[in-house]
């Protein structure tokens, strides 16, 4: 069973429908016990990291997510779900996050002419091979909408990079059983669907 974590951070049904499109059923849940029993977990989200962390803590889902990741089963973070797995975020005046990967979340700098949020389709350049990107061409475009980006301490967790406003930022992360994309795989057309399908076929091992 695949569980999509519901913590009142945006559009979860889009993820569910994208999975259905590739023939996969998933449940949407905010129950920590249901997460513990899931075979794999998708952790989506839009909005602000601070509000997301508060909501996770209020529902006891922070501990549930840590527990799930420790189990070694496949875990996919999307957008805010890709950011709050790091140690901290600059958003909302600086907040503490889940700390599943070392590093922080930074804001795009204020540069004249650089529009923030970074919104639209941008290329993801893969840095290595990984089961979740099977069948997706290097440099394929995915849909982004965000003002903050993940900056992991250990560069070996970076699986894909994207350039915006002269900044190369990690847009796809992978370590052990964790995969996390800054882009919205569920809104990224056929390549996004392929990534979701790959994730659902992956055993969480490299």
């Amino acid at each position: 069973m695949i569980a999509i974590i519901d913590y009142k951070a945006g559009n979860l049904t889009s993820v569910q429908w994208a999975l259905r499109e590739v023939g996969i059923d998933a449940i949407i849940t905010s129950d920590p016990d249901a997460l513990a029993k899931a075979d794999r977990v998708i952790f989506p989200g839009v909005g602000a990291a601070g509000a997301a962390m508060e909501e996770l803590q209020a529902r006891g889902l922070d501990a549930a997510v840590r527990g799930f990741v420790a189990s070694g089963k496949p875990f996919l973070g999307i957008c805010i779900g890709c950011q709050v797995i790091l140690d901290s975020s600059e958003e909302d005046g600086g907040i503490s996050c889940l700390g599943l990967l070392g590093g922080s979340v930074k804001r795009f700098p204020t540069i004249p002419g650089l529009k923030v949020p970074h919104m639209g389709w941008n290329q993801v350049n893969f840095t290595r091979k990984h089961p979740v990107i099977n069948g997706i061409q290097d440099g394929a475009e995915f849909y982004f909408v965000h003002s903050f980006y993940p900056s992991p301490l250990d560069s070996s967790v970076v699986l894909g990079e994207t350039e915006y406003g002269g900044i190369q930022f990690p847009s796809l992360l992978a370590r052990d059983n964790i995969v996390a994309c800054q882009f919205h795989a569920e809104k990224s057309g056929p390549f996004g669907l392929q990534l979701l399908k790959n994730f659902c076929a992956w055993d969480g091992k490299i």
Binding site: W17, E21, Y143, V145
Partner: peptide, 8 residues
């Protein structure tokens, strides 16, 4: 639309 279209 959301069930059939996987772009924003």
């Amino acid at each position: 639309v959301a069930k059939h279209v996987f772009i924003p």
